[in-house]
Design a protein around this nucleic acid. Structure first.
Length: 638
DNA sequence: GCGATCAGCT
DNA sequence: CACAGCTGATCGC
C-alpha cells in the first residue's frame, strides 16, 4: 500500500496520488491509477470546493483512469476538472499560483505502468530536472529500455529522482514468475477443468480491485467465452474488456463476488448463486490469484498450488519483483530514489539504505573516478534478460536455455550500444523480454514502433488549462487493448502495457507433458512436490532450503562478516561472475552487514567504505580489460 | 450525520 | 501469503 505523501521534492507545487492535507494547496493533481490507496482525499469536500473556485487546477490521468474514476458516483464531480492525457505524449502544463499569477512550466509524459487498466508512470521534465514517479508498476526485466520517452536520442535521460513503487523491493521477493508463465498456468488449470463437462465451473477468487482484467480477457479469448462478473458498467466504453465479461451467470468461468463468497464456495455454491438449470450440482474449483515469490536461488517451482480439495492458488502479481525493480533502476541510474511503499517487515531506513545502492552516485562511483561527470550520460544499454538471475530460468515453459548462459558479464556498462530508438524497434529481442511470446506477438517492441510513428516522440502538446476539459472523446480501441497481439495493428503500445495485456497463448501453449509439475498439491501428494510442500509448511516457498547451483561458490556468513571490505572477498566474487554466476546477493549481503555491523578497520577521514556496486563495477571493468586508473585516496580500501 | 482511523478479514 | 479493499467499531466534530 502506498504511503507516498503526495509531493515530490523537485516539484512541490503538484501532487500525485494524494489529495489531502498539504496537497490541498497544489497547483495540479495527478492520478496514476484507480486504486483506493492512491486516491486518498480525492472525494474530499475541501478539495471539491477548491476546484469550484479555481480556473487552473486540474487532475491529470490516463483516459482509462478517468473512465474508471468517473464510473464511481462519489468521484463524479471531478468530471469537469479532469484532463485525460494520451500515453507517451509529452504535454506541457502551466503550474499557476492563482494568488500571485506566478507560473512554472513543466512537461509531463504518461508512461505505461503495467499495474492495472489505465495505470501510468509520470515523467516530469522541468527546470528542476527530470523526475519519474512510477505509481504502482509491473514491468518485466528489459521493458524499461523500450520506453521511448525515457530516452533522448540514443541515450537514457538523466533522471534526477525516481519515486518508486518499492512494494517488493526486498531480496525476499527476488523473483516472481512472469505474467505469461502465470497466465499459462492458470489457463491450463481452467482448461483442464471446464473441459470435463459443462457442469464443471471455475471461480476466480479475485479481490475487489482493478488489475485482473487481463486475466479475464485472456481466458475469455482462449476458451471463447466470457467471464461472469458482478458489475461491468465501468467498462462500458472499453470494448476490449467488455467483450470478455458478462453478467450472465450461465457461464463456466466466474469472477463474481459476494460478501460471504468463501462460505458459498464451501457449500459448493458460486458467489452469484448460479446453479445448473437441470438441477445437476455444479463441480466448482476456486482459483485464488495471489503473489508468489521465490528466492534468488530457488529451483523452478509451480505457479499453481493446490490448497484444498478443490481450491488452488495461482501466482499473480501487480507489482515488479525485486529483480525486476533492480533491473529498472540499474538501467535508469537516477541520482535519488524515494520509496513510496515499505515492504512488509521492513523499515523506511532499511529500504532507503538498500535503494541507495541503486542510485547513480553509488553504483557509478567507481566509473565516475575515471570519467568526468560530463560524459557520464548513459547510452542505451542492451538489457541482458537471460542472465542467471532472470526470472525465467526458473519457470520453464519454452526451451530457451541456450541463450541464458554467459550473460552475467553483459550488464550495465558492458555491451553498450547506441541504436536509434526510432528505427530499431528495440534494443532487445522480443524473446528476451517476453520469453513466452508466441510467433508474431511482440508485446512491447512492436508497439514501440507503432507509438513512435503515431506520436512522433519529440512533439509536445500544450495544454490550455483554462476552460478546457477533455476535447477529444476517448477512443477506447486506442487506449485499452486486450486483444490478442496479432490483432493489435491499431493499438498503441502504451495502452497495451497499461492494461497489462499479455500475448494470448495459443499455438505454443504449454501442455501438461511439458510442464509436468505445473500443479502441486499441498495436501495430497507432498512427496512429489517437495519444494512446494516445504513452501507450504514454512508459509512460503522463499523459505525453502535453497538448492544452490552446484557450481556456485558460497561464502559462509561469518566469513563474509570478517572479510567485508576486504579485496579478497570480492575477488572470489569476481571469479564467480566470470564463471557465469551472478554475484549480486553476496555483494548485497556484504553490504548489509557493512551497514549494520562492527567494521573493524577505521576509515581515513576522506575515505569511505566501498559500496558493493562500486566494487562490482570496478571488477567488471577489470575483467573486461578496460583501463582502470585509481585516483589516489578516492576509495577507502584501495 | 459524517469523516477519519483502526482492527479484522479475506 | 501480503495487495487491495470491505466491514464494523470507535472517536471526534
Amino acid at each position: 500500500m502506498s504511503s507516498f505523501a503526495g509531493r515530490m521534492k523537485e516539484y512541490p507545487t503538484l501532487s500525485l496520488d494524494r489529495f489531502d492535507r498539504e496537497n490541498l494547496h497544489s497547483r495540479a493533481y495527478f492520478l496514476s491509477h484507480c486504486h483506493k490507496d492512491h486516491m486518498k482525499g480525492l472525494k474530499g469536500p475541501i478539495l471539491k470546493r477548491k476546484l469550484q473556485f479555481s480556473r487552473t487546477v486540474r487532475l491529470y490521468c490516463s483516459f482509462v483512469t478517468k473512465e474508471l474514476l468517473l464510473s464511481n458516483p462519489k468521484y463524479a464531480f471531478w468530471e469537469e476538472y479532469i484532463v485525460p492525457l494520451e500515453l507517451e505524449s509529452p504535454t506541457q502544463i502551466s503550474l499557476v499560483d492563482e494568488a500571485s499569477g506566478e507560473k512554472e512550466e513543466i512537461v509531463v509524459t504518461l508512461l505505461p505502468a503495467g499495474h492495472c487498466p489505465g495505470s501510468v508512470m509520470f515523467l516530469f521534465e522541468g527546470s528542476r530536472g527530470n523526475v519519474l514517479y512510477t505509481g504502482d508498476f509491473r514491468l518485466a526485466a528489459g521493458d524499461v529500455s523500450r520506453i521511448e520517452h525515457l530516452h533522448s536520442g540514443s541515450r537514457v535521460k538523466d533522471i534526477q529522482s525516481v519515486y518508486l513503487d518499492s512494494t517488493f523491493y526486498d531480496p525476499r521477493f527476488y523473483q516472481i514468475p512472469t505474467r505469461e508463465v502465470c497466465l499459462n498456468g492458470i489457463s491450463e488449470l481452467v482448461g483442464n477443468w471446464i473441459s470435463k463437462s459443462s457442469y464443471h465451473v471455475v471461480w476466480l477468487n479475485c479481490k475487489a480491485a482493478y488489475g485482473y482484467e487481463y486475466l479475464f480477457t485472456n481466458l475469455g479469448e482462449e476458451f471463447n467465452t466470457q467471464i461472469h462478473v458482478k458489475n461491468l458498467a465501468m467498462f462500458k466504453k472499453m470494448p476490449e474488456i467488455l467483450n470478455y465479461v458478462t453478467t450472465d451467470r450461465r457461464n463456466q468461468i466466474h469472477a463474481c463476488r459476494h460478501p460471504t463468497d468463501e462460505e458459498f464456495f464451501q457449500g459448493s455454491r458460486l458467489p452469484c448463486g448460479c446453479t445448473a438449470s437441470d438441477g445437476t450440482p455444479l463441480s466448482i474449483i476456486s482459483i485464488k490469484p495471489s503473489t508468489m515469490w521465490f528466492g534468488e536461488r530457488m529451483k523452478k517451482t509451480n505457479v499453481i498450488i493446490k490448497t484444498g480439495a478443490s481450491s488452488f492458488r495461482a501466482c499473480f502479481s501487480f507489482h515488479s519483483s525485486y529483480s525486476e525493480i533492480k533491473n529498472f533502476l540499474s538501467y535508469l541510474q537516477p541520482v535519488n530514489i524515494y520509496p513510496s511503499v515499505i515492504p512488509i517487515g521492513r523499515t523506511l531506513t532499511e529500504v532507503t539504505q538498500m535503494l541507495k545502492l541503486m542510485c547513480r552516485n553509488q553504483s557509478d562511483q567507481a566509473a565516475s573516478i575515471y570519467k568526468p561527470l560530463g560524459v557520464l550520460k548513459r547510452g542505451i544499454v542492451e538489457q541482458p534478460t537471460y542472465d542467471s538471475d532472470s526470472d525465467d530460468g526458473l519457470f520453464e515453459q519454452l526451451d530457451l536455455a541456450p541463450v541464458r548462459k554467459k550473460m552475467a558479464l553483459n550488464r550495465d556498462t558492458k555491451n553498450v550500444k547506441a541504436p536509434s530508438p526510432q528505427k530499431t524497434a528495440a534494443p532487445v529481442s522480443v524473446e528476451e523480454s517476453f520469453p513466452l511470446t508466441v510467433a508474431g506477438a511482440q508485446p512491447v517492441a512492436r508497439n514501440y514502433v507503432d507509438c513512435t510513428e503515431t506520436i512522433k516522440g519529440t512533439e509536445k502538446k500544450v495544454i490550455e488549462v483554462e476552460g478546457s476539459g477533455s476535447s477529444n472523446p476517448p477512443k477506447w480501441q486506442d487506449f485499452f487493448t486486450t486483444e490478442t497481439l496479432t490483432d493489435s495493428q491499431n493499438s498503441l503500445t502504451s495502452q497495451l502495457q497499461s492494461c497489462c495485456s499479455v500475448p494470448s497463448s495459443s499455438p505454443s501453449k504449454t501442455t501438461g507433458s511439458q510442464t509436468p509439475d505445473l500443479f502441486s498439491d499441498e495436501e495430497e501428494t507432498p512427496d512429489n512436490f517437495s519444494l512446494t510442500l516445504s513452501a507450504s509448511l514454512s508459509n512460503h516457498s522463499s523459505q525453502n532450503q535453497d538448492s544452490y547451483l552446484p557450481d556456485t561458490l558460497i561464502l559462509q556468513t561469518e566469513q563474509r562478516g570478517r572479510e567485508q571490505g576486504d579485496l579478497r572477498t570480492n575477488t572470489i566474487s569476481l571469479e564467480k561472475e566470470i564463471n557465469g554466476q551472478n554475484i549480486q546477493s553476496e555483494l548485497e549481503e556484504l553490504s548489509e552487514s557493512q551497514a549494520s555491523s562492527d567494521f573493524d578497520i577505521p576509515c581515513t577521514p576522506e575515505s569511505k567504505i566501498p559500496q558493493t556496486d562500486e566494487l562490482s563495477q570496478l571488477y567488471r571493468k577489470l575483467a573486461s580489460g578496460d583501463e582502470v586508473v585509481i585516483r589516489k585516496g578516492s576509495q577507502g580500501s584501495m
